[in-house]
Design a protein around this nucleic acid. Sequence first.
DNA 1: AATGCAATTGCAAATCGTTTGCAACTGAGG
DNA 2: CCTCAGTTGCAAACGATTTGCAATTGCATT
Lengths: 146, 146
Amino acid sequence: MNHSAQTKPDYERELRRAGVRITRPRRVILDILAATEDHPDAMEIFQRASTIDKSISLSTVYRTMKLLEGMGAIHRHAFEGGPARFEQASGDHHDHLIDLDTGDVIEFHSNRIEELQDEIARELGYEIVHHRLELYGRRRKASARK
Amino acid sequence: MNHSAQTKPDYERELRRAGVRITRPRRVILDILAATEDHPDAMEIFQRASTIDKSISLSTVYRTMKLLEGMGAIHRHAFEGGPARFEQASGDHHDHLIDLDTGDVIEFHSNRIEELQDEIARELGYEIVHHRLELYGRRRKASARK
DNA sequence: AATGCAATTGCAAATCGTTTGCAACTGAGG
DNA sequence: CCTCAGTTGCAAACGATTTGCAATTGCATT
Ligand SMILES: [Mn+2]
Ligand SMILES: [Mn+2]
Ligand SMILES: [Zn+2]
Ligand SMILES: [Zn+2]
């Protein structure tokens, strides 16, 4: 849920430790990701980066996203329809509800569902490596129902 | 689960009722889908169709898949990595477990998970239109099951 | 601070899956 | 059979992402 109480992860330190160079484009992209509360796609990250450094290319955004994803620093989501969207991997695990009308992405978490998934996989003789749970819906009309 | 006890749906009748023409390419593709137990992608369907009618084009496969999807006759899945895969919509709702090593797709269903999803959406003020639950995992080594 | 070189970049071109414009063709009601 | 809107194959266009390559840059080393 992007708890604001969360310690902002020091990506630069982590990158250095991984023997990766801290370049100007990477620093800019890292800053953008750290300051982001939503789930931007590559083009959005590119545009935000461009306002800071005109010379950054879209290719570099993609390459950096792949690098960070490989390091486990970010998660890539492929919601239906649009391009891949990203978010920092720093928070706790959660799944997403997409508002079909507005495109809003709402985060949620259910321990019960997570447990059931494990149980199902186990029964089938499998061990889950990762999963994807996306709910697509629309706001309930506030029609005097209850 | 593609229950074999299921009545094979008469797509041709359904199509006619929808004012859609039964053409040779469509008949071929429909037959392939009806005879399919797995989740083929457009290229696979195209290749299977080609062995029956050399003149069918990949475009027509795509167009037909879109038509059938719009009619609710098939479901389109975008599992991570590969191209979209399809399956008849005739069976009961189910979700998928993808074997990361073999690519096998295993179907499962959990009423409990479905209920929890509804509950979560409701609490957030939403009504689910559809959802996507995919488990990616690998066979458990130690204890043999199945 | 100057040097050396592999890592990284921007750019353009390539790739992949899918869609689309268009002229030729065909299903099905008359 | 006629007719003609629906459908097709083909090629070209598409959007998202990746990649080859020559130029640039971070940074370990003097
Ligand atoms: Mn999220
Ligand atoms: Mn299935
Ligand atoms: Zn989850
Ligand atoms: Zn489900």
